[in-house]
């Protein structure tokens, strides 16, 4: 890999994981790995990215910094501000909306005492609105920790939140 500056904000395990993705592409096409690399960097930094981490990813892949910033700011699954330990994404697309996502959203905001896009003061939960998750037959749906919680009602949502550490 490219020489990484000593000050790199990427940990050794993060770099090793990124290397696996880089290896999947031709030698001079490390830029192709920028999306997984940013996800990995985000995973190793409590779920969010900082400017210096994004720059480190760019340096590590040997691509212009602005190219990494373009990607990191484009996709909504990269978090550019710190997030809670649990990131709940409530689908607000049409099927979920027809099945009560709006009411569920109101309930979640009230229950957690935060608005969409905010994090609870104890740093436990971040609540986001997301677009269609492709699970319409079991709407409404929440996405958290790479898992779908389907056919949610306010009661089921309460249980889910209470079960979080």
């Amino acid at each position: 890999m490219n020489d990484v500056k000593e000050k790199s904000a990427l940990s050794q395990p993060a770099r090793e994981e990124i290397d696996k993705w880089v290896a999947k592409y031709p030698e001079d096409k490390a830029q192709s790995a920028v999306i997984p690399a940013l996800h990995i960097a985000q995973k190793y930094n409590q779920g969010s990215l900082t400017d210096s981490i994004i720059e480190s990813v760019a340096d590590y892949l040997g691509i212009p910094k602005i190219a990494a910033f373009e990607v990191a700011t484009f996709y909504s699954m990269y978090e550019l501000k710190p997030v809670g330990r649990h990131k709940m994404g409530l689908c607000k697309s049409i099927s979920c909306m027809l099945m009560g996502a709006d009411e569920l959203g109101d309930h979640l905001q009230k229950k957690l005492g935060i608005k969409f896009g905010e994090t609870t003061p104890d740093g436990k939960v971040t609540l986001k609105e997301v677009e269609c998750l492709g699970a319409c037959r079991h709407a409404p749906v929440v996405h958290m920790h790479n898992r779908y919680y389907e056919s949610l009602t306010p009661e089921k949502a309460d249980e889910l939140i209470e079960g979080l550490e």
Binding site: D51, E55, P64, K65, I66, A67, F69, E70, T73, F74, Y75, S76
Partner: peptide
């Protein structure tokens, strides 16, 4: 020397150096 880029998406797209 790619210093300028398009960051953000849709209506929030901006041209700049980001940093």
């Amino acid at each position: 020397l790619p210093e300028l880029g398009a960051t953000g998406r849709g209506e929030h797209t901006e041209i700049g150096t980001y940093i």
